[in-house]
Amino acid sequence: MNGIVISIFEQGLIYGIMALGIYISYKILDFPDLSVDGTFPLGAAVTAALMLKGINPWLCLPISAVAGCIAGAVTGILHVKLKIKDLLAGILTMTALYSVNYRIAGAPNQFLMGKSTVFTLPESMPTFITTYKYIIVIFIIAVVMKFALDWYLSTKSGFLLRSVGDNEGLVVTLAQNPGTIKIIGLAISNGLVALSGSLACQRSMQFDITSGTGTMVMGLAAVIIGITIFKKIKFMRLTTGVLFGMIIYKACITAAISSGMASSDTNLIITVLFVATLLINDFTSRKNKKKGGVINA
């Protein structure tokens, strides 16, 4: 039982970093970005390729993130400069990344058995650390990323990012180019997603080219769960809610599977869970409107 709980937290926090990325694109930028289905395995592919070359596993994290940033920027450029619709721009990048990921990893699957990862700790560590090494390392990385994102969103540049999704016209009146800000936002978003992919690859010790399927929907579900449940809590930031949202999401999936459903049923569970959260979300926001919330004069 203990093992299951820890595994839920591990998975929840690894994928939670991905959900932070989707929080930026979907919630802040209002951009349904499907490129994440390609940038998640991109992070894994880059990591697998580098680790097979013997590169330091810690270095794999930022390099994967940069690769994700570039891919995100491509989606942004397709949308902003070439005026391709947001959904289509993401699908195009995702499609192209399938080939790119294959090239980078050299094969649709790579196994990394015996390679050292960020979870390879020195022998001298006390045993209670080595027993819980996975969750400790994952927790630290996820929390650092959360605080880094919180910090960025509190800077001047972050303020612009927050305004561009809500009110693009305001950004124009501030004499800033909204297109550039969207490209930056998508780059950061996909950087986080690729970092999450890198961490997932190091945890599972393998790369699988299909591992990105459903990333967007999963992340979106976590974002909506997290925000719906935790937005009422004043002192807690939404980014914390998003991490918890993914943990809750992973717990639901685990519960469904352990109650006898096959793991191939997860996609169906994801969709049902997704629609359920959307309905709850819709319900609560409607309640708010009745109370006389936002009036669009």
Binding site: Y152, S154, T155, K156, S157, F159, L160, S163, L174, A175
Partner: peptide
Amino acid sequence: ENMSIADNKGKSFNLTKGL
């Protein structure tokens, strides 16, 4: 926050504190 961004118009929107 709104006043702060408006006040920053014409200057750089960099990584310093937004407020």
